[in-house]
Design a binder for these strands. Sequence first.
DNA 1: CAGTATCCTTGTTGATACTG
DNA 2: CAGTATCAACAAGGATACTG
Lengths: 109, 109
Amino acid sequence: MANKSIEPRDGCIASAMDIIGSKWTALILRDLALGPKRFSELEKSISQLNPRTLSQRLDGLEAQGIISKQASQANRPKSLYALTAKGADLLPLLKQMATWGNKYAANRD
Amino acid sequence: MANKSIEPRDGCIASAMDIIGSKWTALILRDLALGPKRFSELEKSISQLNPRTLSQRLDGLEAQGIISKQASQANRPKSLYALTAKGADLLPLLKQMATWGNKYAANRD
DNA sequence: CAGTATCCTTGTTGATACTG
DNA sequence: CAGTATCAACAAGGATACTG
């Protein structure tokens, strides 16, 4: 069947939404775009986000191969979350969102 | 403060997510990208979506200025939903999603 | 056709406390 | 620091039936 849709095949948009659609994920990815971050850094940066939910998001993203987690227990517990290639490929998407938001979002300051 | 983030100012991504982040919205927009559609057309196209939620999404999108609604009650009830300019500006975003999804989504057929 | 009304299930959150 | 455990409370979403 001829597919005139903007998605090459069905489910493409849905699968992207499946990743970034859950609350906070886009913001987490935005932060990780600047480089690897620790749990507490993310927690601080996204102040409305509580540790339980952050942990859930992080686990989910790792399971989906969007981020990688590197934990070391040298002296003090330390964890580092970073984007994978698959996750980095999501960045143009975030930029596009930012572009749209910048044009249309109400200014809040 | 210097903002090295991929968003020019805080809240841009959040405001885009506020629109497309709710479930089904991206799919509705995808369909409207092909031209104005009726309620039942959308309902048929997105088969998992029930009328209540569709109605909610449509109302919300209209309130946010993403789509316009034109209803006529000539003989038979008829409604037509179409993208506004603001809504059309969301399409690059959807294409970007589709691109990502096409690269990474599991094939389902 | 274009929705509403109702009810129910699930996801998300908030607060707080606790562990390696 | 980096989380997990537990509970309560709520909002979003799903199923189904019904109406102008």
